[in-house]
């Protein structure tokens, strides 16, 4: 297959994953803001930080409220990673690799884009927000389902999956990092249970507040939550689960390339790592290092498979 096609599939999948995660992040923020008495602006600040756009948001003196944050994350033209721009990029990449997608997958991508572009064309109020967010989640899920259900399990499929998991690993690690201070022993003693609001915010941003209870059958503690999101392979958005998929798909694409080695090293580190060691050596340092290695892997994949001319 063409290197450019691999590139298009990889980024199409990354952008779709990003759009979905942004909607989920905003959904969690909204939920917290609604259920929490008092000032919600701290929570909105976290949401903006997790999305990596806090500075851009503040640039023209915006005040963080449900509506301003939602507008910035979903549709503001000047916000490069807003859902509207992210979906456009996903769709442009999909259109570029049209011949590598099944008709079903392409039509759901295109129809989803047309529908959401319409939905996000005008500003909306806080009242509309839950419906808008559920539309975004539904359209991205529809596309994922169509792609998963119809794609040949060949290299096209693997490049798209790689994009999904690289992006997901990045998003999950940034969500934990933004909240890492509440997971630190200085904030609440190790082993003690967290303030409801904090753990709920974290777990909801990865749609796993129920799943956690099922998986651990225990009150959420900082250590258990970190373990769940970083090391637990049963959790589909954990770093370990993402890297299990990444090494699997790189393996299918062929052995021996440079990017395989670094992916396997990261996977092994997550496989053998213990949450106690991670806390002992510093959660924030661990996550910063992970985000860097994950980015480096993304570039290494692009080079190995000739995404762009050298």
């Amino acid at each position: 297959m063409l290197g450019r096609t691999a590139n298009g599939l990889f980024w199409m999948a990354r952008y779709m994953e990003r759009a979905e995660n942004t909607a989920r992040l905003l959904d969690a923020g909204l939920r917290i803001a609604l259920t929490r008495t008092g000032d919600a602006s701290g929570e909105w600040e976290s949401v903006l930080n997790s999305a990596g756009v806090a500075e851009a948001f503040r640039a023209n003196g915006r005040q963080a409220t449900a509506e301003t944050v939602a507008d910035f994350l979903l549709r503001a033209p000047e916000s490069p990673s807003c859902v509207l721009n992210t979906l456009r990029a996903a769709r442009d990449n999909g259109r570029m690799v049209r011949t590598a997608l099944t008709r079903d997958a392409w039509e759901s991508l295109n129809a989803g884009w047309l529908n959401l572009r319409e939905r996000l064309s005008a500003p909306f109020t806080e009242t509309d927000l839950p419906e808008v967010l559920s539309d975004i989640k539904r359209e991205t899920a529809l596309f994922r389902g169509m792609f998963y259900g119809t794609a040949l399990r060949n290299e096209n499929y693997s490049f798209a999956r790689l994009g999904t998991y690289v992006e997901r690993a990045d998003n999950t690690s940034r969500i934990i990092d933004v909240k890492y201070y509440v997971l630190l022993p200085s904030f609440s003693r190790v082993g003690s249970s967290l303030d409801n609001y904090h753990w709920e915010a974290i777990l909801r941003s990865v749609s796993a507040h129920r799943a956690f209870a099922w998986a651990y059958n225990a009150e959420p503690t900082p250590v258990l939550i970190a373990d769940f999101l970083i090391l637990n392979k049963k959790m589909p958005r954990s770093l370990a689960a993402c890297y299990q998929e990444i090494t699997h798909h790189l393996g299918l694409l062929g052995e021996g390339a440079g990017c395989h080695k670094s992916a396997c090293e990261i996977a092994a580190m997550l496989e053998s790592g213990s949450i106690d060691t991670i806390f002992a050596e510093g959660l924030h340092e661990f996550l910063t290092d992970f985000v860097q290695r994950n980015n480096a892997l993304s570039s290494a994949i692009a080079t190995t498979y000739r995404f762009i001319p050298d």
Binding site: M1, L2, G3, R4, A6, E155, L253, Y305, R306, P309
Partner: peptide
């Protein structure tokens, strides 16, 4: 995607 190599037009595959 294309480049001339060894007197042929070649496409860049993965």
């Amino acid at each position: 995607d294309l480049r001339v190599i060894d007197g042929r037009v070649q496409m860049r595959l993965t």
